[in-house]
């Protein structure tokens, strides 16, 4: 028996919006600790990892580990039927071939019930090493979204150059070039507007904007985004940690006492000159 109740159903809507254009089919792994999902896009260029802690739900019951394979476009279509202020309840029986979604209106006078067929997915699960990255940039998520969108007008790739005092995003293409430079901000009253850089060494790497624009669809989930990178490892060395992680924390929107209840992490390798 699996049952998860989320008063802020809008969080699930935002999560689906953040992954459905990147990944078509994926499995939710449900355990007593929470729900998680890991999947690559169809071209296997990027990886997305979503985690929701059990204590982020208002009610969570998972008697035994379950894998719920589903088409995310179908799930997204059904989740869209929930109002933003609905409570969403996910239910699955043991060994069932479907899950039930219940949408409860705030005044509890209306309950909608939908079922989604589950799929048996032959998913490839990748082990992500727990590593530290040499460069970490925290910045407003809407600013990152804007930069990726604007630079897509100029070129296919963004070059991120990071030094202690600031970070520069640049693109070049047939029509010309463009760049945006963000300085590290002093401690401010509004932490959501701050730009924070922590680094061991300077870095300059290029990434495909097509994927970063997909990742930026997670913007409504979090006011800040974290970019974690490490400088290029010389050719022939294991490239193990040479990926960029774009991370959005998932918070409940409790104004008085907001807390992190999970995350979305996207992994992308840098573009390398041929």
């Amino acid at each position: 028996m699996f049952e998860a109740r989320l008063i802020q159903g809008s969080i699930l809507k935002k999560i689906l919006d953040a992954i459905k254009d990147l990944v078509t089919d994926a499995s939710w792994d449900c355990s007593p600790n929470g729900m998680s999902l890991q999947a690559m896009d169809t071209s296997h260029v990027s990886l997305v990892s979503v985690s929701l802690n059990s204590d982020g739900f208002d009610k969570y019951r998972c008697d035994r580990n379950l894998t719920l394979g589903m088409n995310l476009i179908s799930l997204s279509k059904i989740i869209k039927c929930a109002a933003n202020d609905d409570t969403i309840i996910i239910k699955a029986g043991d060994g069932g071939d479907k899950i039930t979604l219940l949408f409860e209106a705030q005044n509890e006078s209306e309950v909608a019930e939908y079922e989604i067929k589950l799929m048996n997915l032959d998913s490839e699960y990748l082990g992500i090493p727990d590593t530290t990255y040499n460069v970490t940039i925290k910045m407003p998520s809407n600013k990152f979204q804007r930069i990726c969108r604007d630079l897509s007008q100029i070129g296919d790739a963004v070059t991120i150059s990071c030094a202690k005092d600031g970070v520069r995003f640049g693109a070049a293409g047939d029509l010309g070039s463009g760049s945006i430079r963000l300085a590290q901000t002093a401690t401010s009253d509004k932490p959501e507007d701050s730009v924070t850089i922590s680094m061991q060494e300077a870095l300059c790497q290029s990434f495909a904007l097509k994927y970063l624009n997909h990742f930026a669809k997670a913007t409504p989930l979090s006011a800040q985004v974290t970019l974690s990178m490490s400088p290029d490892v010389p050719l022939g060395e294991p490239l193990l940690f040479n990926v960029c992680v774009v991370e959005y924390n998932i918070s409940d929107n409790d104004d008085e006492n907001p807390s992190t209840i999970g995350f979305i992490r996207y992994y992308l390798a840098p573009k390398i000159d041929d």
């Binding site: 690559m40 699960y125 990748l126 495909a208 490239l239 193990l240 990926v243 390798a269 041929d274």
Partner: peptide
Amino acid sequence: KCSQTRIDSFFKMM
């Protein structure tokens, strides 16, 4: 010309 590496070449299959 830039090439894009696949992400599964970075992480180990479990």
